[in-house]
Design a protein around this nucleic acid. Structure first.
Lengths: 221, 221
DNA sequence: GCAAAAGTGTTTGAGGTACACCCATGC
DNA sequence: GCATGGGTGTACCTCAAACACTTTTGC
C-alpha cells in the first residue's frame, strides 16, 4: 500500500464513446465487464489515467487498446464525477468521443472485458452506472457539431459516395434530408472532390466517388 | 497519513472563470496566491473537490466562497490535466465558467489568497500554470454560446437598457454591432419586455428599461 | 421493361447586413 | 444651442427549405 496522501484522493478514468457507421446505422462500441462492479453489464470502454500521463494521452491509449486505432478524431466533451457513480471508490471520469469508420475498427475485448462489440444507438443494452448520461451527452455534442462538415467526413471511408455522406448526417441527426439540397450545399463548401471513379453496387446507376479535398480535414486516415 | 491506495491517485480541483461586465468592460475574477506554488501569482479561483462532493457542488462551493454568490449561471467546459501543471503533485482540474452581473459580486480573498479582484480581459496579469489556456477556452466557449440570447441576460442587472445588453454582446465578441439590427433582433426574439421605466443618466435622451420576459431565463436573480 | 438508386435546378421565404437621420435631455 | 447617446425603417443579399423528373444500371 505505498501511495498515501494527507487527504482522500479520487481515482480518475477516461471513458470513450466510439461512434461509427455500420450497416447504414449509427453504432457505438461497448464492452461487457468481466469483473465487479457491474460484472456482466455493458459499459463504455475506458480505464484509469496513469499518474504521469495526460488526459488526452490516456484517451488515445484506451482507444488503441480497444480498437487498434492509433489515429482518429477524438475530442473531450465532459467530466462526470457524482460521488456514488462507482461502488469501489470515488471515481471521476473524463469523457471523450471518437469518430471512426467501421472498417478501421479491430475490436478487442481488453483485459477485464468478457466481450466487446458494436451496438446500434437504437438498440442499446442496459449500461453500467452513469454511462447512459455520458452517452446522451456525447450524442448531443456530435449533433451540435455536425454542421461542421468535417465531422461527417470522419465517419466515412477515404472514398465515398455523396449518398453515403448524406446518410451519416441523417443517422447522427435522426432525420432525413433532401438529396438535392444536401448535394448542393456539400459541393458548394468545396471540401470534397470527385475521384473520377464510380461504384457499381446493385441494379441501378453507379455512384460517383468522392474524397476529402484537403487531407488535413481527415488527418487520421 | 491515513489515506492509502494501491495505485497513485491524482488530486482533483475545480477552477472557475467568473466573467462579469464592469465599467463597460469584460472582466474576470482572479485571486493572488498567498502560498506556494505560484505564490504571488494571479490565478483562477478554485479548490479541491471534496471526496463526497459532486463536481458541480464543488464548483458552487468555491463560487460562493469567492464571491458570496449562491446562484448564477455556471457551466462546465473542460478538464485539464497535463501531468506537470502543478509542481506539488498530479492535479487534474475541472473547469467551469460563471456569468454574474458585477453588482452581485462580493469579492472575498479566500483562505490562501493574498488578494482578489477583477481584471479586464484586455489587461491581464501573468497567470499561474496553465490558467491562460483555461481562460482562453472559457472565452471561446462563451463566444460560441452568445448567440443564445439568454447568455447576455446573465451579465446584466434585472433592469437594463438595450444599449447595455448590446454592449455585453460587443464586449464578449470583441466587435461592434449595428444598433438598429441588434434591437430589431432582440425585440423579435420576444425574450425581453419594457418595464415602462426610463433611466436618465447624463445630458441626453433617457433610455427605456427592459427586463427578461421569462424569469426562468435568468433563474439565479 | 422495370425496379432501384443516382443525379440534377428553380422558386420562395426568412433572416442577416448595410445604412442615416431625428429625438430628448443636461449643460 | 449644442453635444450626447436614444431611438427608428428600408433595401438588398444570402442561405435554407420545398419540390419532381430523368438517367443508368442489373436482372
Amino acid at each position: 500500500m505505498p501511495y498515501t496522501y494527507d487527504y482522500p484522493h479520487p481515482a480518475v478514468t477516461v471513458d470513450i464513446v466510439i461512434f461509427t457507421i455500420e450497416d447504414d446505422d449509427l453504432k457505438i462500441l461497448l464492452i461487457q465487464r468481466g469483473n465487479e462492479p457491474f460484472k456482466g453489464k455493458w459499459a463504455l470502454p475506458g480505464g484509469f489515467v496513469e499518474i504521469d500521463e495526460s488526459l488526452r494521452r490516456a484517451a488515445w491509449r484506451e482507444l488503441k487498446e480497444e480498437t487498434g486505432v492509433n489515429a482518429a478524431f477524438l475530442e473531450q466533451f465532459g467530466a462526470f464525477g457524482h460521488p456514488d457513480r462507482d461502488p469501489r471508490e470515488r471515481i471521476i471520469t473524463i469523457a471523450y468521443y471518437a469518430l471512426i469508420p467501421a472498417e478501421r475498427l479491430e475490436i478487442k475485448a481488453d483485459s477485464d472485458a468478457q466481450d466487446a462489440r458494436l451496438f446500434s444507438m437504437n438498440d442499446l443494452p442496459e449500461l453500467a452506472t452513469d454511462h447512459p448520461k455520458i452517452l446522451r451527452r456525447a450524442l448531443e455534442r456530435v449533433q451540435e457539431k455536425i454542421d461542421d462538415p468535417v465531422i461527417a467526413l470522419q465517419l466515412v471511408p477515404a472514398e465515398f459516395t455523396l449518398t453515403e455522406l448524406q446518410r451519416v448526417h441523417e443517422r447522427i441527426l435522426g432525420i432525413s434530408l433532401d438529396k438535392r439540397n444536401f448535394r448542393k450545399k456539400m459541393l458548394a463548401l468545396d471540401l470534397v472532390e470527385s475521384t473520377g471513379g464510380k461504384r457499381r453496387d446493385g441494379r441501378h446507376r453507379p455512384a460517383s466517388l468522392y474524397r476529402a479535398k484537403d487531407p488535413a480535414d481527415v488527418p487520421y486516415r
